[in-house]
Write a protein that binds this DNA or RNA. Structure first.
Length: 420
RNA sequence: GUGGGUAUAGUUCAGUGGUUAGAGCGCCAGAUUGUGGCUCUGGAUAUCGUGGGUUCGACUCCCACUACCCACCCCA
């Protein structure tokens, strides 16, 4: 127990660090190219923010939040998603008073949900996300989606397609709810308990049900796309035209409704292609009412979140994980007790010249030092040996070609740095 | 929250109701005196997940708990 990480959590181990750095670099670059700047918000927020923001009828809020009382008797919740915190910060820091749109991204922020872990699902996972405040046109969604696809493409991922839908706005959604309820009619009594509850609180989510009997009933239900108001329809059409112009493949999937209540108009997902096919890699959409709902000025907005662990799964399945780069350019071996100080100093001199250098920390034999140098993938071994040192030189061995040459001690560090 | 599977050295896995629990890989050290990857030799490392129970005796059988893997719900 003591030496066991809590259920559903994972350590990021040193041998995997380069993968995370690689992904984060691509995320940073893609976001920066589109004019998004980084934002970091707290790992925890007041519980109320998520109740009001995410919606108290959602599964996330009802059964998946890490909520606790702090010592000041405040109800605190570990972030179960990324958008609410960003919106809170946008309002609290009066970013709405600055030049709009305000475009921000968060880099693999930890996200917490109390669920049973399984493949691609953890209790703590990490999301990269982008949020755009103060842009009302569908170009916002097009920008988000194309930036995201550009990022995924730069990682080498292929065959990813975007699934989009529109779930309307406060003007047209009530009409759809009415149409859906009328269609369901008495059949609602044949549906599962969850759906019967949804019927009253959030009829749209009935479309999301996976129960066979519910799916059968819902199969021929009216589609929200047919009920959109003129503005929403036009918005959705323009988004499709924008994506088509960018040659971004997409599918219209009228069953995407998303599990968060704040979405309006556009919702979209990117689905995993290999391994756990159908699992969402990314989810997002437009949330024009959220800023105002949380106490800010009416501000149109849109964003998405994408799970880093799921990107890694998809990369692995598509066989795209790069090998770990060498951590060491030069291993400095010492031979003879008197050589320990000169060897350590030489390693330090190399480091000062920005060379990745390593040296013995265990008093190991020369043979063992070479073996170690080989294991860590050092390109060169610099031998600081008594004989050579007495002659004022250091021997440098190229581990791949086995070629050795001697370098004057005074200029050896610079000479090595120049070779790399 | 529900269902199925699993739990033995660092790791991947064997193993039998009964004396000192094994193997491959990995790790460490040697193979004539200052040189890695291959080979050979030797060595260290396991309260057999935790806690109960059955039994003369449990790593092995039973129960509970915990964790991991997989799936449902839902989601990234």
């Amino acid at each position: 127990m003591l030496t066991q990480a809590p259920k559903g959590t994972r350590d990021m181990l040193p041998q995997d660090a380069y993968l995370w750095h690689w992904i984060e670099q691509k995320e940073r670059e893609a976001a920066a190219r589109a004019g998004y700047r980084e934002i970091r918000t707290p790992v925890f927020e007041h519980t109320e923010l998520f109740l009001r923001g995410v919606g108290d009828t959602t599964d996330i809020v009802q059964k998946e939040m890490y909520t606790f009382k702090d010592k000041g008797d405040r109800s605190i919740t570990l972030k179960p998603e990324g958008t609410a915190g960003a919106v809170r910060s946008f309002i609290e820091n009066h970013l709405f008073a600055e030049t709009l749109p305000c475009k921000v991204y968060y880099l693999n922020a930890p996200i917490f949900r109390y669920e049973n872990p399984q493949s691609g699902r953890l209790r703590e996972h990490h999301q990269f996300g982008m949020e755009c405040f103060g842009g009302k046109e569908p170009t916002v969604e097009a920008e988000l989606i194309s930036t995201l696809m550009g990022m995924l493409t730069s990682l080498g991922l292929k065959n990813l397609s975007v699934h989009i839908n529109s779930i309307g706005c406060p003007n047209c959604r009530p009409k759809y709810h009415a149409a859906l309820k009328q269609y369901l009619g008495d059949n609602i009594h044949c549906m599962c308990a969850t759906c019967r509850e949804r019927f009253e609180k959030n009829p749209l989510r009935i479309l999301d049900c996976k129960e066979e009997k519910c799916r059968d009933i819902v199969k021929d239900a009216p589609v929200i796309l047919d009920c959109l108001c003129d503005e929403c329809r036009e918005h959705f059409n323009q988004l499709q035209a924008l994506l088509t112009a960018q040659k971004i493949p997409f599918e219209i999937d009228p069953h995407i409704v998303r599990g968060l209540d704040y979405y309006t108009k556009t919702v979209f997902e990117i689905i995993m292609q290999s391994g756990r096919e159908g699992l969402a890699l990314c989810g997002g959409g437009r949330y024009d009412g959220l800023v105002e709902q949380l106490g800010g000025p009416a501000t149109p907005a849109a964003g998405f979140g994408i799970g880093a662990e799921r990107i890694l799964i998809e990369l692995r399945n598509q066989n795209l994980l790069p090998p770990e780069p060498s951590t060491t350019d030069v291993y400095v071996a010492n031979l003879g007790a008197d050589m320990k100080i000169p060897a350590f100093s030489f390693a330090q001199a190399l480091r000062a010249l920005n060379v990745k250098a390593d040296s013995d920390l265990n008093g190991r034999s020369l043979k063992a030092q070479f073996k170690y140098a080989d294991k860590i993938g050092a390109r060169y071994v610099a031998l600081v040996g008594g004989d050579e040192y007495a002659r004022g030189v250091i021997k440098l061995r190229d581990m791949a070609t086995k070629e050795e040459k001697e370098l004057p001690v005074d200029t050896a560090a610079q000479a090595v740095a120049d070779m790399l």
